[in-house]
């Protein structure tokens, strides 16, 4: 049996190496790639991203990968967006002007406006409240698990798509899900064992083998 194949979409933004390290640690065949062929062959897609929304969206468009990714999604291949990669799924973002996103999960990326005394960016470890109990993302971690956040903007979406939230004086969207399209605002690749459990949950739901000897 060929190994479960993960494509980490490389569109020239972000800390791809850490995402690759984490997924490789789980034993999957993770490839960082900007090739449409690799997207077509993947059993699961990961869309990472750091930095600002607009350059990320521009680079992703320029990569020519949006079409191939959409084609995979329509066939049920799951996708996990991480940080800005999750925000790109939204309709639009107000970061540095109003910019259109992929629009795959309806919602708007807006600046965090916590009460005074709490600064932005929201950086550090925060515990999440799971709103979608059946979500594969939290199947192995559960409620109250800590993940590492580092962001200034967040994804405001309808309750039907909010998979988890956390509290930073205001309610922050921590994870979104629309069927097999998922996104997390925090960094599972930097969240120690909790992050690996989350990634394992996502890949197992995508049909990957679970832990144990292969």
């Amino acid at each position: 049996m060929s190994r479960f194949r993960v494509c980490i979409v490389d569109y020239e933004v972000g800390n791809l190496r850490s995402v690759h390290n984490a997924i490789s640690r789980l034993g999957y065949d993770a490839r960082v790639s900007d090739s449409a062929d690799e997207v077509r062959r993947a059993d699961a897609l990961v869309l990472p991203g750091v930095g600002a929304f607009e350059p990320a969206m521009r680079q992703l468009s320029a990569s020519g990968l949006i079409g191939p990714i959409e084609a995979r999604l329509s066939r049920g291949t799951p996708l996990l967006g991480i940080c800005v990669g999750m925000q790109l799924l939204a309709t639009d973002s107000e970061e540095n002007g109003l910019h259109r996103g992929l629009g795959w999960i309806p919602g708007h990326v807006r600046r965090l406006r916590p009460p005074s005394g709490l600064g932005v960016p929201h950086v550090g470890w925060n515990d999440v409240r799971v709103l979608l109990p059946g979500s594969p993302l939290f199947a192995r971690t559960g409620d109250g698990t800590h993940f590492y956040f580092d962001h200034t903007y967040h994804f405001e979406c309808g309750v039907e798509h909010a998979a988890a939230t956390c509290d930073y004086g205001v309610t922050v969207t921590a994870a979104v899900q629309r069927e097999r399209l998922m996104g997390v605002q925090f960094h599972p690749e930097k969240s120690q064992a909790a992050g690996l459990r989350l990634l394992r949950g996502f890949f197992v739901a995508a049909g990957a083998p679970g832990p144990g000897p292969c």
């Binding site: 190496r17 390290n21 984490a22 120690q192």
Partner: peptide, 28 residues
């Protein structure tokens, strides 16, 4: 590669290309 936790890195940095290389290597 040996850790799974946020990593900040410093030491003599003075260019964007160096920052880019460090982020690509796994620094946050």
């Amino acid at each position: 590669a040996a850790s799974n936790v946020p990593l900040a890195v410093g030491g003599g940095l003075d260019s964007l290309s160096q920052v880019d290389a460090l982020l690509r290597a796994g620094a946050d």
